[in-house]
Amino acid sequence: MTSEQATYARVIRRETHSPRSGLAIVLAVILILVCAWLGTEIVLALLGRPALLVAPVDMGRGVVAIGRYPTVPVIIAGVIVAIIGLILVVVSVSAGRRARHVLPSQRSAIVVDDEVIASALARQASYAGNIDPDDVEVRVSRRSASVRIRPTSGQSVDKDAIEHAVTEMLERYQTAPALHARVSVQKEAKVGA
């Protein structure tokens, strides 16, 4: 892999995956607030003042005496903390995904927003079916493109022609990850103007 290709791969990765900085900032703020609260409680205890919520001595006694508490609430609290921890680990390890796809190119990095692909597929479906573009709704997800057609009353729609045109367009695009088209025609037609 040349340095140019490595640069393109890095750009593509950055543009198609979302960072976890938002979650990291929220967790850091929560941790800072907890540490500030604990520090305030310790200072208040050293000055002989009443605690804001719980005195540090009482917190320590509560942790030491956890075996004397009823078992069910302690287990429930432990399960809740474990689930929150598991969710945070999964979120931190898994990559976030932006609504974008990559198009093949030897000379550059091409990243296309899913809305652009949806717009092109809607236009292609309206041309292939000889229907109004407002009658076509397209949603693009990670692996599929869903084309929904709501024809005007009294107008017939050739679903196979539309499906062929949309599939052919997706094959030309060669998106990564690959998209598969699903075309559906609603039974309830809208009233023509």
Results as ranks from 00 to 15, higher is better:
Arg13Glu: 15
Glu15Pro: 01
Glu15Gly: 08
Ser18His: 07
Ser18Pro: 05
Pro19Cys: 11
Pro19Val: 14
Arg20Ala: 11
Gly22Asn: 13
Ile25Phe: 15
Ile25Thr: 14
Val26Trp: 12
Ala28Gln: 10
Ala28Arg: 09
Ala28Thr: 07
Val29Met: 10
Val29Ala: 15
Ile30Tyr: 14
Ile32Asn: 00
Ile32Trp: 12
Leu33Met: 14
Leu33Trp: 10
Leu33Val: 10
Val34Leu: 14
Cys35Leu: 15
Ala36Pro: 05
Ala36Met: 10
Leu38Tyr: 09
Gly39Tyr: 00
Gly39Asn: 04
Thr40Gln: 10
Val43Cys: 02
Leu44Thr: 08
Leu44Met: 11
Leu44Phe: 11
Gly48Lys: 08
Arg49Gly: 02
Ala51Leu: 08
Val57Cys: 00
Met59Trp: 02
Met59Ala: 13
Gly60Trp: 10
Ala65Thr: 15
Ala65Arg: 15
Arg68Ser: 15
Arg68Gly: 15
Tyr69Met: 15
Pro70Ala: 10
Pro73Cys: 08
Ile75Leu: 15
Ile76Val: 15
Ile80Thr: 12
Ile80Glu: 09
Ala82Glu: 09
Ala82Gln: 07
Ile83Trp: 05
Ile84Asp: 06
Gly85Asn: 10
Leu86Trp: 11
Ile87Glu: 04
Val89Lys: 01
Val89Cys: 07
Val90Gln: 06
Val91Asp: 07
Ser92Asp: 10
Ala95Asp: 11
Arg97Trp: 07
Ala99Tyr: 02
Val102Gly: 00
Gln106Ile: 07
Gln106Met: 09
Gln106His: 15
Arg107Cys: 08
Ser108Val: 09
Ser108Asn: 15
Val111Leu: 01
Val112His: 00
Val112Thr: 02
Asp113His: 06
Asp114Tyr: 01
Ser119Met: 05
Ser119Tyr: 11
Leu121Ala: 05
Ala122Met: 02
Arg123Val: 00
Tyr127Glu: 12
Ala128Phe: 03
Ile131Met: 03
Asp132His: 05
Asp135Ile: 03
Val136Asp: 04
Glu137Trp: 07
Val138Ala: 05
Val140Gln: 03
Arg142Val: 05
Arg143His: 15
Arg143Ser: 14
Ser144Ala: 13
Ser146Arg: 01
Ser146Met: 10
Ser146Cys: 08
Val147Glu: 06
Ile149Trp: 04
Ile149Ser: 04
Ile149Met: 01
Thr152Val: 12
Thr152Ser: 14
